[in-house]
Design a protein around this nucleic acid. Structure first.
Lengths: 234, 234
DNA sequence: ATATGTGAAGGGATTCACAGCT
DNA sequence: AGCTGTGAATCCCTTCACATAT
């Protein structure tokens, strides 16, 4: 087993890709794969696949490759996808509703347990079997329903406050769809997170469609300046 | 002027962030900024800001900092956002409609000029003042309307074919929202892009919401394993 | 023979220190 | 004095070669 220290963020993104490929192979009833097969499907090198997997263990058999169900199960475990994640959505405008209704998001036990907004026009309405509540009630809500993640789909000027509300409610994972940088700290305190700060250990991932458009504009004009892959992300 | 060789993809993502910050400063009628101010707002170091900008030129004044309108204009030029981009959306289901209707996407002269799908239930309907057309007519469409980018919002199993259609129509920038890897080559030819291949110079950017959820699951379980930022990417 | 797992080498991006301009 | 611009150094990720296992 490799020592667990820092793991490249790009490795985590690629593991997600490998897992998706393995699911496809399982659907096609392919029982076996290899680092070179996965690499081709993922658009990376076989070295990269093996190195990425080696951060977390040994999942293959030399001379043979990987068993699809085994590697799939192990990657799900590594990524934390073998459990249920309770999710609230903050911001139930067009984007928030699109997220709530996106079909495949129900996979992996990502369960939407609450929808929150500030708009009187939305509160009380039902979206995907959930009633939209006022975001001020989020604190009370988490006392009766455990919440693991919050998805932020509010306008950018409201994103920092909404994130603060999530963090104060004890939620430690935020998927930010707003095109703005969430400052991982409370505004009215210093500019460095104290130990014991409520933002300690909070993870923010960004999904930014507008940024993707703009990156694409640049690379469409300058295709030769592309150096590597992944982002995807973002 | 710095030599133009490879530019880190992360630099491009950060330039997009700096530009967004500059727009906010301009709205607040702030006339000046500095690398350290931008750095704090973007969540990076001032060294990083200056290095990123240095790839493209000298935009500041020593001892003074940067003029907001000047740096904004220059970044828009660098990113290719001082022109009009004609965009088609392929896949007009819930996701494609959400993208078409996302308000801020109208900025920067990203103009939706066509919507395409295969579903008889959608073709002929109007979404954001555009009539949905059959994707088979895309080739004819681009002969009368120049198209710079295609946004792919089809189900993952249809994404490769739809991308192929875009590329055959001569479109060289693809923003892929489907949770799958687009192979940058034509399926029935070898597994390496020939020179002269229709995929040469085609740029693919991915915006993958499901991948973001899964990365967030991992980092919420393992917050100490986070090494760097940006995804954004995605 | 074939394909994994991994230490070492290589390359690229970030960090740094400071020269240079206002 | 203050802040930018940039070569040099550092660090981290990717690539590689090969030892190892079936």
């Amino acid at each position: 087993m490799t020592r667990v220290t820092a793991i490249p963020t790009a490795t985590i993104s690629r593991l997600v890709t490998y897992l998706r490929i393995l699911e496809g192979l399982e659907t096609q009833e392919v029982g076996r794969t290899s680092s070179s097969d996965l690499a081709e499907r993922a658009g990376v090198t076989a070295f990269q696949v093996r190195k990425d997997l080696a951060y977390f263990g040994r999942f293959g058999t030399r001379g043979m490759g990987y068993l699809v169900p085994v590697l799939k199960r192990e990657l799900m475990r590594v990524l934390g996808l073998n459990r249920t994640w309770n999710v609230v959505i903050v911001g139930v405008g067009r984007l928030g509703q699109a997220i709530a209704n996106y079909p495949a998001a129900g996979d992996y036990q990502f369960q939407y347990v609450g929808l929150f907004d500030v708009s009187p026009e939305l509160i009380g309405h039902t979206v995907r079997h959930l009633t939209v509540q006022h975001v001020e009630t989020l604190g009370q809500f988490v006392q009766t329903t455990p919440v693991d993640m919050g998805f932020l789909a509010v306008p950018p000027e409201r994103a920092q406050d909404a994130a603060q509300t999530l963090v104060e409610a004890g939620i430690r994972g935020i998927l930010n769809f707003a095109p703005t940088v969430i400052q991982p700290r409370t505004a009215d305190r210093g500019d460095v997170a104290d130990p014991g700060d409520e933002w300690r250990g909070v993870t923010i991932e960004n999904v930014d469609f507008l940024a993707g458009m703009k990156r694409l504009a640049f690379y469409t004009l300058n295709p030769h300046l592309k150096s590597a892959d992944l982002e995807e992300q973002e």
